[in-house]
Design a binder for these strands. Structure first.
Lengths: 205, 205, 205, 205
DNA sequence: ACGTAATCGAGACGGTACGTCCTGTCTTCAA
DNA sequence: TTGAAGACAGGACGTACCGTCTCGATTACGT
């Protein structure tokens, strides 16, 4: 039933994923069709249907292909000891990527597919977001061990608190997604909404 | 050119929006078509195309119809003086709505449309999310004035910090969306990620 | 279920049938597709599928359209009193039509469809061949009444005996299909295979 | 270039031809595909494409295989001296074969291919119909020499006159194909359409 | 109250894409 | 080297919808 992966044509695979990504960028998610991807990739439609069950999985794999180059070495976040600065650096980069016209359309397409398809969401959580999220958690853990974060802090919640607002503002376009906003999120998340006595801030590393 | 709204058939309008919402719930966004909505509503296709420019706006209006009942009195958040408790109450309700099978599919459909269509996102920000967001801001402002929140806090960032993680976890299914999670987000957002001297908690500055 | 014939677009109908006939002639039956007919006719595929259940019925109707001009007055065979001459005239015309490159491919296509589809064969017998066959029968009946044909002759068998060999030689290409052959068939059918005393032949009209 | 016939796998060849014939019978010409034949025969597609240039030639060879058993001794028609009786016998058998559900679909498929493909028609005339037609001619020649048929009779025309009507009625389903019809054709062909003095019948010239 | 003009349900139309089946070619691997 | 297996580019299938259009039949106005 499942086709023999061993015989798979790697050239066609890459052509399909590249075509899919490029088309997303050029014409936008709504106008991308399997037929269009096949034509652009110089491939028969059946070759797509043989290996991918849905348009969403093609898009997903297109992103996987992008990140394949960096495979081997798992991603890490910078760790200078200054947590706020490190987080700011990373979050600013995220914001810039989200504003990059080359990635915006494809990323929105991926987000859409994940929103609608639970299976894809699981795959995303495991294969695309997984390593990155682990790096984020790791950076926070390091800070926690240095006494810069609360001992009882749930690191997953912490990650959500920092990256959630940014991702959300991007998806819903609920406001300008700027570097300043990123910094505000970092600061506010670190300090909390409540008033804070100055003495409590800026503990030495 | 623009159709005369005065002559619009209100019965058809409601039938279309109800049919759209019901179909989203029953068959999911991907399988909902204008044609299907028209048939289900017992309406000609042209009647839809005459009044709505896209499927997304139909879905949007279907949500507007839902919230029409509560029109007149703008929404407010509870204000018992205990900010954490009030936020927890509201966020728990949000979580429960997101987990309600009656609303999940339609809400995901709306989120999808907003993600892909900037115009729709603006309409959403203004007409659907606007009043609610103002209520959230208002509750926080009230707390701020009572000295429970930092003076220099940007209330929009604060709203994002509280609701962003939840909305995000729901969209991406990046983890279980429970009442406990809602509470954790509230607590962590209020206190911040940094260690906080116990004495400093819940005390006016 | 059946579409409303009243709303049918007559222009499209003629374009489809003309395109079908022309394509048969130009590229041959095997390479004619519904898709090709639709494109050539400048018509959506659905417009063909809406009104015709199969490629065969389209081809059939294309022939019907051709003979629509002559509708009204039923066809008749010439009746000069000289049966052999009249039959020869008609059969020669048939042979020439079969050898006409404009009609050969379409006629072979129609023959093929009739061979494979009993329903189409019935439609052919009734609507396309029917009037013509009646005319043939009528000419023979006239001769029979004039004492030129056997009293107990079954006219349907007689028609088959004259036209069957020609049609068959055309279909199977079992030999050259010439005017001489047509005449031979007429003479042989009229006289029979058996030897015939000269006196029996050439009865005065 | 041309595959080496010596190395050909006879088992596969028979499996293919048998599968083709069986499929024609079971699902009809329109639904038979090379792919289907290969699967049914337990054979790779390439094995078919290697040895046959078209679906028509496969079908043709399937019929050849059927008549292979009788190879060696060329077919003959019965010759009791009573021509009418002998022809009736043979034509009745033909009619029965045409009405046999086991052969009808395959024979229609073969007829279709011959109608559309001149090369195949030539192969048919030579290899499948050839010997049989020669037998028919031979029987008539024998009768002619016995003075039962006209001296100047063209035997090919005579064969067409007898078998043409039957084959035609079968292909076009223009009427019931019965034993009675077969007999009528024989009688009418022998006697001709013209009136015949009773005394002249069955008498040597 | 009455024409008249817009809206309505209905659905045909030219199209695009779907997901499937098949064609004829090619490659891989076992015998 | 042949053959079974099956991937490949490509073309057509028959279906579902798109957004536009045309058809009467209401329907609500403005006179």
């Amino acid at each position: 039933m499942t086709p023999n992966t061993a015989r798979r044509n790697e050239t066609s695979r890459r052509a399909i994923l590249t075509a899919a990504f490029d088309l997303l960028q050029e014409v936008g998610y709504a106008k991308v069709s399997i037929e269009g991807i096949a034509t652009r990739a110089g491939v028969g439609k059946q070759t797509i249907y043989r290996w991918w069950p849905s348009k969403g999985t093609v898009i997903f794999d297109a992103f996987l292909l992008l990140s394949e180059g960096a495979e081997g070495e798992p991603p890490t976040l910078p760790d200078t000891g200054d947590l706020a600065a490190d987080l700011s650096l990373v979050l600013r980069a995220t914001v810039e990527e989200m504003n990059d016209p080359r990635y915006e359309q494809p990323m929105r397409a991926l987000a859409t597919e994940i929103t609608l398809d639970a299976e894809l969401a699981a795959a995303y959580a495991q294969r695309l977001d997984g390593p990155l999220r682990e790096a984020k958690r790791q950076r926070l853990r390091s800070a926690q061990q240095a006494g810069q974060l609360a001992d009882d802090l749930d690191l997953d919640v912490a990650v959500d608190l920092i990256w959630g607002p940014v991702l959300n503002r991007w998806l819903y376009r609920s406001g300008p997604l700027t570097i300043e906003y990123a910094d505000q999120v970092v600061t506010t998340a670190l300090n909390g909404l409540r008033p804070r006595r100055p003495a409590a801030q800026g503990m030495p590393a």
